[in-house]
């Protein structure tokens, strides 16, 4: 599931993707504008930097910016970095697999279905770029129906 960490990270990245080229975003501004606890955001930005998704500059005039154009960054990449392998429930992951105490993993139908669900999640998130997510304007209609 998308945790608060994943959600806050995505919001911060949308924020950065709206900056003018060459401009840096301050952590305090991003925290205030998106209702994110500042300490938590600092930790999130640190992880995004380690993963090569954002770049930072320290000191006066410092801040954060995207390491690559928003058109090249897939939402799936961000979520995997912040929340680990995409998985709707803990047992539906091969790499960060956590077995349930109360069921047999080989025969559990719920797990099998959730493995399909995770693939569907991955497909959507890997198809969507940060730029596309930024440009979703909160309209209730899905994108493909809006032009009609």
């Amino acid at each position: 599931m998308l945790t608060a960490k994943g959600k806050y990270g995505l919001k911060a990245l949308v924020h950065m993707s709206q900056m003018q080229p060459g401009q840096l975003a301050l952590a305090t501004e991003m925290a205030a504008a998106n209702n994110i606890p500042k300490k938590f955001l600092d930790a999130i930005l640190g992880e995004l930097r380690n993963a090569g998704i954002v770049q930072s500059r320290k000191g006066k005039g410092g801040g954060y910016r995207l390491a690559r154009p928003a058109e090249e960054v897939k939402v799936g990449a961000i979520v995997r970095v912040l929340d680990g392998p995409l998985a709707p429930i803990p047992c539906a992951s091969h790499t960060r697999y956590e077995a349930c105490d109360d069921c047999d993993v080989e025969t559990c139908q719920v797990r099998h279905m959730m493995l399909d669900v995770r693939n569907a999640i991955a497909e959507v998130l890997d198809k969507t770029t940060l730029a596309q997510m930024r440009d979703m304007d909160g309209d209730v209609l899905p994108l493909e129906l809006r032009t009609a």
Binding site: N50, A51, G52, I53, A67, E72, V73, K74, G76, A77, R80, V81, P85, L86, A87, S93, H94, T95, L115, R118, N119, I121, A122, E123, D126
Partner: peptide, 17 residues
């Protein structure tokens, strides 16, 4: 055999990560 699916693989990160 190790099982990996696309959902496990961190695409699009920096090399070190």
């Amino acid at each position: 055999k190790v099982e990996l699916e696309a959902a496990d693989v961190p695409f699009g990160t920096g090399l070190r990560y």
